[in-house]
C-alpha cells in the first residue's frame, strides 16, 4: 500500500460518511463507494480511518477493497480508459484494441501514465454490444473501434 497523508478536509468527509451510515460494519461497502467517490480511489490512510471509525481491523477493510474490482487503490488518470472485455467485444477484437492501448500509452492494465493523463483498465460489459468492440474513456463510449483508431483518439485527448 502506498502511504499518502490524507488532507484534513478529506478526512472529515470520510468521517462524516461513516457517521451517516451509523458506523455500521454492515454498511462497509456503501461507505467505501462513497469514500472512493471523494478522490477517485481509496488510499491506505483512508482505509485506516474507516477501520478505526467502524471499529474493525484494517485487514478487514483492505480485504473488502481488494476483493471487489470496483474499488481501487491507485489514482486514475485524467482520462480513464476502460476497454470492454465482455465476450461480445472480445470476439469482435477487444483484445487487439487493448494491446494497442497498452502499446500507445506504454502502460499495463491497472496503471496510470507518469504524467497522470491516462489510466488503463478493463471492464466487463457496458451493454453496448451492438457497438462492439467498445472503449469507455471517461463517460464517453467509443464504439466499433479498430486498433488503427487508437493513436488518433489518444492524440486528440492529449491536445
Amino acid at each position: 500500500m502506498a502511504t499518502i497523508k490524507l488532507a484534513c478536509d478529506v478526512a472529515r468527509q470520510v468521517e462524516a460518511i461513516c457517521d451517516k451510515h451509523g458506523n455500521d460494519q454492515g454498511e462497509l461497502i456503501n461507505i467505501l463507494h462513497e469514500a472512493q467517490h471523494l478522490q477517485g480511489y481509496l488510499p491506505e490512510e483512508m482505509q485506516r480511518l474507516i477501520a478505526h471509525k467502524l471499529n474493525i481491523p484494517v485487514s478487514k477493510v483492505y480485504g473488502v477493497v481488494s476483493f471487489y474490482t470496483f474499488f481501487t487503490m491507485t489514482p486514475k488518470g485524467k482520462h480513464p480508459v476502460s476497454v470492454c472485455m465482455g465476450t461480445a467485444c472480445y470476439v469482435r477484437g477487444g483484445e487487439k484494441l487493448l494491446e494497442e492501448f497498452k502499446r500507445v500509452l506504454g502502460i499495463d492494465v491497472g496503471e496510470t501514465t507518469p504524467d497522470g493523463k491516462f489510466s488503463l483498465d478493463c471492464l466487463r460489459c457496458v451493454g453496448a454490444c451492438g457497438l462492439a468492440p467498445v472503449v469507455m474513456i471517461g463517460e464517453k463510449v467509443y464504439g466499433r473501434l479498430q486498433p488503427v483508431d487508437v493513436k488518433k483518439i489518444i492524440e486528440e485527448l492529449e491536445a
Binding site: 460494519q25 462497509l28 461497502i29 456503501n30 480485504g63
Partner: peptide
C-alpha cells in the same frame, strides 16, 4: 450496490456482500 465481483451473482455470496463482507 455491488462492487464488481462475478461470484456475487451466487446467492450466498451475494448475501455476504450485502452484509458488507467479502
Amino acid at each position: 450496490y455491488g462492487a464488481g465481483a462475478f461470484v456475487c451473482g451466487e446467492e450466498t455470496a451475494l448475501i455476504h456482500s450485502m452484509e458488507g463482507k467479502r
